[in-house]
Amino acid sequence: MSILEIIILIGPFVWFLFSLALIKGWLAMPNFFIQNKPNPLRISVIIPVRNEEKNILLLLKDLENQSFDHEQFEVLVANDNSSDRTAELVSHFSKECTYALKLLTLTNEPHSSPKKRAISQALHQSKHEWIVTTDGDCRVGKHWLAAIASFQQQTQARLISGPVTFHDEGNASSRIQIVEFASLIGSAAVAMFWERPNMCNGANLSYSKATFQAVGGFSGNENLASGDDEFLMHKVAARFPGEVRFVKSTEALVTTEAHQNFRSFYQQRRRWASKWKHYQDWKVSALAIFVFLANVSCIAGVLLFSFNQLSGLVLASMALLKFSSEFIFLSLVLRFLGQEKSILLIPLVQLIYPFYVCFFGLAAQGKGYEWKGRKLQ
């Protein structure tokens, strides 16, 4: 075996070991079940919205069906200059729902990103100590708040991240997105279990108001359109080590719509990928670079093989190392998320993924992207 072949194999081999570690971490992380004990926690649910007339009532009705005591939570819908009927629908629903529902009109903050501005202003107007955030296009189960409250009561965590997945629309597009997103949710969950949090998702995030204020909220990155979830989590993890947790419970699951076209998918993933260069924790940045380089090595292997610079045996070894343990890990996460039908598409996603990672890793180096009808930096 040549030196070149050995170098090319390093990336897939390290990835194989990394995926094995993720499998071990995922299996070691216990599933959480709601404890039927009196829970005094009072919750303020914050929902930033912009033009969500097609979705917002579905979420508000999900909250109407919560098993958690309706006297113990309020819902604040932070309307970010919607030009459709979002505000009208929320206002009308507030007159008939059995929980406290408020529609907030945001004031202008020129140096703050829209979503961070929405969350910050809603948080300052909230009545309760525990904050839960989700998005206007999400759906939640009837025990969602009960699961979060029970988990917080048991663990006393300062910040809790919950599972998120896409609706299975029965087509290849949504299922490919489900698989890709499961890799992010699963690896983020294991990292929190290891007390090395790196990622989370604002569609299912909760924390105490005191914790938010203790770390200065979104200060330091308020101008960045993305990161209302991850940058805050990193600050909490640095200030309060071991107090960032993932609730591994299907009762705490949040679902959202898969992207219907490549343009919206591209804009979101570019927005996500743009965050890595702003991370303050070198370990999180190093992980992003490792993922990028490991996938670059796979593409390099294919190119070298096509020019007869790499043997078929080495290419097959790369594929086995890269895909075997990764397939097992993704299967475990998808089963937990109730997305067993997407398991069959894992091999396809694995073939696409190296090109996907490299493409968005490079695309994120540019400036600006579109989101919710706005051009953001």
Rank of each mutant, 00 (worst) to 15 (best):
A203I: 04
A238P: 08
R139L: 10
N261R: 11
L104G: 01
P12Q: 05
Q177P: 04
N55V: 03
K375T: 14
V296E: 06
R139D: 05
Y279N: 09
F212K: 05
S208G: 15
L89A: 05
G202A: 11
V333K: 02
F166S: 01
E52V: 03
A210D: 15
F292Q: 10
E243T: 14
N171H: 13
A172I: 15
N198S: 14
F262L: 13
P48I: 02
V296L: 15
S306K: 11
Q121H: 09
E340D: 14
A87I: 01
L224N: 08
Q177H: 05
K277L: 10
D229C: 01
R245D: 07
Q156E: 15
F13L: 15
A316W: 08
A319R: 05
G217R: 01
T134K: 03
S206H: 05
L17D: 07
F212P: 07
I119R: 04
N308G: 10
L60D: 04
V254A: 02
C138A: 15
H278R: 08
A188Y: 03
E257S: 14
G301L: 05
F93T: 06
E5S: 15
E251L: 08
L103D: 07
I176C: 10
I47R: 01
Q365A: 10
F323M: 12
T107R: 13
L59N: 01
A252G: 07
V244F: 06
P163A: 09
E251K: 10
E129K: 14
A191P: 00
G366I: 07
A78N: 08
G242P: 07
F193N: 11
D84P: 08
I34E: 07
H124D: 15
C97H: 04
Q72E: 06
E96V: 14
G25M: 09
N39D: 12
S174F: 03
S112N: 09
F193V: 02
S150K: 01
A172Q: 12
F181P: 00
A189H: 04
P114C: 08
L9A: 14
E96H: 10
Q121S: 08
E257P: 10
L334V: 07
N31G: 08
R42Q: 15
Q365S: 11
H259F: 15
Y207T: 13
L103E: 04
S112R: 13
G141K: 13
V291K: 12
E257T: 10
V164L: 14
A28W: 09
A149I: 08
E195G: 00
Y369E: 10
H259E: 10
K372V: 07
L60V: 06
V75K: 01
P38A: 08
L58D: 13
Y356K: 11
G361V: 01
N108A: 12
L320V: 11
Q177A: 02
